[in-house]
Deep mutational scan, measured.
Amino acid sequence: HEITLHINGRRVKLRFRDEKAAEILKEAAKKGLDEEELKKLAEELWR
Results as ranks from 00 to 15, higher is better:
residue 1 H to S: 10
residue 1 H to Y: 14
residue 1 H to F: 15
residue 2 E to V: 12
residue 2 E to M: 08
residue 3 I to N: 01
residue 4 T to D: 09
residue 4 T to S: 08
residue 4 T to Y: 10
residue 4 T to W: 07
residue 4 T to I: 15
residue 4 T to E: 15
residue 4 T to N: 07
residue 5 L to W: 00
residue 5 L to F: 07
residue 6 H to K: 07
residue 6 H to N: 14
residue 6 H to T: 13
residue 6 H to P: 06
residue 6 H to S: 09
residue 7 I to V: 14
residue 7 I to C: 04
residue 9 G to M: 01
residue 9 G to Q: 03
residue 9 G to F: 00
residue 9 G to S: 03
residue 9 G to L: 01
residue 10 R to E: 07
residue 10 R to H: 13
residue 10 R to N: 08
residue 10 R to A: 07
residue 10 R to V: 13
residue 11 R to Y: 14
residue 11 R to K: 15
residue 12 V to E: 01
residue 12 V to G: 00
residue 12 V to D: 00
residue 12 V to Y: 02
residue 13 K to L: 05
residue 13 K to C: 07
residue 13 K to V: 15
residue 13 K to H: 11
residue 13 K to A: 06
residue 13 K to D: 08
residue 13 K to N: 09
residue 13 K to M: 05
residue 14 L to A: 03
residue 14 L to K: 00
residue 14 L to F: 06
residue 14 L to W: 01
residue 14 L to D: 00
residue 14 L to E: 00
residue 14 L to Y: 04
residue 14 L to P: 00
residue 14 L to R: 00
residue 14 L to C: 03
residue 14 L to N: 00
residue 15 R to Y: 09
residue 15 R to P: 12
residue 15 R to C: 08
residue 15 R to W: 06
residue 16 F to W: 05
residue 16 F to E: 01
residue 16 F to T: 15
residue 16 F to V: 15
residue 17 R to K: 10
residue 18 D to A: 03
residue 18 D to W: 03
residue 18 D to S: 09
residue 18 D to R: 01
residue 18 D to E: 07
residue 18 D to Q: 03
residue 19 E to Y: 09
residue 19 E to A: 14
residue 19 E to H: 14
residue 19 E to D: 12
residue 19 E to Q: 13
residue 20 K to G: 14
residue 20 K to I: 10
residue 20 K to R: 13
residue 21 A to V: 05
residue 21 A to P: 02
residue 21 A to T: 09
residue 21 A to Y: 05
residue 22 A to E: 08
residue 22 A to I: 12
residue 22 A to F: 10
residue 22 A to P: 05
residue 22 A to V: 11
residue 23 E to H: 14
residue 23 E to Y: 06
residue 24 I to H: 06
residue 24 I to Y: 07
residue 24 I to P: 01
residue 24 I to W: 04
residue 24 I to C: 07
residue 24 I to S: 06
residue 25 L to A: 03
residue 25 L to T: 01
residue 25 L to K: 00
residue 26 K to T: 12
residue 26 K to I: 12
residue 26 K to A: 08
residue 26 K to Y: 12
residue 26 K to H: 10
residue 27 E to A: 12
residue 27 E to R: 08
residue 28 A to S: 08
residue 28 A to H: 08
residue 28 A to P: 00
residue 29 A to Q: 07
residue 29 A to T: 05
residue 29 A to Y: 11
residue 29 A to E: 04
residue 30 K to M: 13
residue 30 K to Y: 08
residue 30 K to W: 06
residue 30 K to T: 13
residue 30 K to V: 10
residue 31 K to H: 14
residue 31 K to A: 15
residue 31 K to Q: 14
residue 31 K to G: 11
residue 31 K to I: 11
residue 31 K to M: 15
residue 32 G to N: 06
residue 32 G to C: 05
residue 32 G to L: 07
residue 32 G to S: 05
residue 32 G to V: 04
residue 32 G to K: 04
residue 33 L to I: 11
residue 33 L to S: 09
residue 33 L to P: 02
residue 34 D to G: 12
residue 34 D to F: 07
residue 35 E to D: 07
residue 35 E to V: 13
residue 35 E to G: 09
residue 35 E to Q: 06
residue 36 E to G: 12
residue 36 E to F: 11
residue 36 E to L: 12
residue 37 E to C: 05
residue 38 L to H: 00
residue 39 K to S: 08
residue 39 K to H: 12
residue 40 K to L: 13
residue 40 K to G: 08
residue 40 K to A: 14
residue 40 K to Y: 10
residue 40 K to T: 12
residue 40 K to F: 12
residue 41 L to D: 00
residue 41 L to C: 03
residue 42 A to Y: 04
residue 42 A to I: 05
residue 42 A to P: 00
residue 42 A to H: 02
residue 42 A to W: 04
residue 42 A to C: 05
residue 42 A to R: 01
residue 42 A to F: 04
residue 43 E to C: 06
residue 43 E to W: 06
residue 43 E to H: 06
residue 45 L to Y: 03
residue 45 L to K: 01
residue 45 L to Q: 03
residue 45 L to M: 10
residue 46 W to R: 02
residue 46 W to M: 06
residue 46 W to Y: 06
residue 47 R to L: 15
residue 47 R to N: 15
residue 47 R to G: 13
residue 47 R to I: 15
